[in-house]
Design a protein around this nucleic acid. Structure first.
Lengths: 250, 250
DNA sequence: TAGTGGTCTAGACCACCAC
DNA sequence: TGGTGGTCTAGACCACTAA
C-alpha cells in the first residue's frame, strides 16, 4: 500500500481531497526520477515488480507509467522494458527544437560558443528564473549553424547555484539538456516559449551576415525541471530566411 | 463484433497487419463523426451502450474514447456523458489560437473583414491545400483587434468546392472553425503552423499603423479536417509589439 | 435515486525481443 | 524459451450530475 497505511480508512476519498491511486503512484515514480534513483537510459523494474512493490495492480501501475510516457519522461520498448527517457535520442531531440531548415531536412544545427560569463541576474532573468536580487547567473552566447551557415544567435542564462562550474568547462556539447541531466541531475521536463519578430541589432547582423534591421524571429524560452524549478532562460534570434519555426497543433 | 465476423479466424493478429481492437473501434467512431452521425455538442451513447453495440468490453470502448478525447474530438463530463467537442468553447478556442496580448490577458481578438474574393488557386495555395491546377478558392482578408487596436492582418484561403457559398454570406463570425463545423460539416482536427519574421509591406503598415519594414511575425497555418483533407490556408501577420506567440512544450 | 463517467482489480492471452 | 510490454475482458465500487 501507499499513503493509506498510516490512516485507518484504507481508501480516503473525500469530495475535495480525492486523489486516485494511480496519481499517487505516478507522484512516487516522479519523486524517484527527481532523486535520481533511476538515471537517463536506465531500465525500470517490470510493471509487475513495480506493482507488487507499491501494492497496486498491474493495471494501476500501467496507468501511472502511461502518464509519464505521455510526458516524455519514460520510454516503453515492447519486449524489452520501460526506460528513463534521454534527451539525446532522435525522438526527444526535436521535442524542444522546433526550427527546421527551409529544405525541410530534419537535423540539429551545430553550435559554436562565442563566450561564457558570470554576472548578477538582471530583472528579466530574475523574473524568468524566479531568482532573488543579487543572485549570480552564468551566461552563454553561441551561434548555431545549418550546413555551415550561421542561422541562430542564442543567449542562455543559467542560475549558478544549480549549474556551478559549468562556466569552467572546456567545451559545451551541442545538446545542453543531456548535459544538464547527466552532470547536474537536472531533467528538463517542459518549457514555455514566447515568439516575437524583432529587428536585427549590430551584433545579430554581424554574426548572421545580415543587414542591421533585418526581421528576425526571437524565441524566448524558459525551461522547467522535473521538480518545477525554472532552470534555463534562452533567447534565440533566428534568421528565418533560412529556417522556420514549426508547430503542430493537435 | 467488428471486422472479424467475415473471417473464420476470430482474432486476426498477423505480424504486420495487426491492429488492436480499440484501434478499430476508434476508427469506427471517427468515421461516424465524419459522417455527422453525432454533431458538435451532441452527447454520445453511454460507454456501456457503445461497447455492447460494437461487441467489445467497456474497457476497450473506454480506451478508444480516451484517444478521441486526447485528440480534442470528444469531451467527457463526469456524471453527464461524453460529448462531441465544439470549436467555440473556452477550452478549445485557444487550442488553435496561440497569440496572447502582452498584458497576458487571455482573450480572443475581434475581427473586421476587409474583403472576400474568389479566384484561381495560386501555387502556394495549390500546394498547401492539395488542389489541382485551375481550382477556385475563396480568399478572405481581415484585421484582428485586441482592445480596439489592430494587431493582426490575416489572409484566409478556402477551396470553393468545400465551402461553396461562404463568399456570399453577409457576415462572417469571429470563430470561423465553429462555422466550418456547423454549416459545412468540416471539423478542423489539426493544423500545422510555420512561423517566420517578415518586414511589413505597405498594406500591413497602413492597416496596423506601423512604419513599412517593421518586423512582423508571420504565421502560416494549414488546417486539416477530420478526414485528413487540408481545408484552410491562413497567413497571419502579427504586430508583436502588442502580442506574442506562446507555445508550451511538454 | 438512477445513470454516467472514473478508478481499481485479477486474470488471460498476444506480440516482441533477447538469449 | 522466458520475460517484457500490449491488449482485452468481466466485474466491482466510487464520484459526479440531474431529476
Amino acid at each position: 500500500m501507499i499513503a493509506q497505511m498510516d490512516n485507518p480508512p484504507p481508501r480516503e476519498k473525500r469530495a475535495l481531497g480525492f486523489k486516485p491511486l494511480y496519481g499517487q503512484v505516478r507522484d512516487i515514480l516522479v519523486a524517484r526520477l527527481i532523486e535520481g534513483v533511476w538515471k537517463p537510459g536506465d531500465p525500470l523494474p517490470s510493471e509487475f515488480q513495480l506493482a507488487e512493490e507499491l501494492g497496486v495492480s498491474q493495471g494501476t501501475m500501467r496507468k501511472a507509467l502511461d502518464e509519464l510516457v505521455g510526458r516524455n519522461l519514460l520510454v516503453r520498448r515492447q519486449g524489452r522494458g520501460t526506460f528513463v527517457a534521454r534527451h539525446d535520442q532522435q525522438r526527444a531531440l526535436f521535442h524542444f527544437f522546433k526550427l527546421e531548415p527551409n529544405d525541410r531536412s530534419r537535423r540539429l544545427p551545430t553550435s559554436q560558443v562565442l563566450g561564457v560569463a558570470t554576472g548578477t541576474a538582471d530583472n528579466a532573468e530574475r523574473e524568468a528564473l524566479s531568482l532573488d536580487a543579487g543572485v549570480k547567473v552564468i551566461r552563454v552566447e553561441r551561434l548555431r549553424f545549418f550546413e555551415g551557415k550561421a542561422i541562430v544567435r542564442e543567449r542562455i542564462s543559467l542560475p549558478r547555484a544549480i549549474f556551478a562550474g559549468i562556466e569552467e568547462r572546456e567545451a559545451l556539447p551541442n545538446t545542453l539538456y543531456a548535459l544538464y541531466a547527466l552532470d547536474y541531475g537536472v531533467t528538463v521536463a517542459e518549457a514555455r516559449e514566447e515568439l516575437r519578430a524583432v529587428a536585427a541589432g549590430p551584433e545579430d547582423a554581424r554574426d548572421l551576415g545580415l543587414a542591421p534591421g533585418t526581421p528576425l524571429l526571437e524565441i524566448r524560452r524558459v525551461a522547467v525541471a522535473l521538480d518545477g524549478r525554472p532552470v534555463e532562460l534562452r533567447v534565440s534570434r533566428c534568421d528565418t530566411g533560412h529556417c522556420r519555426y514549426v508547430a503542430d497543433l493537435r
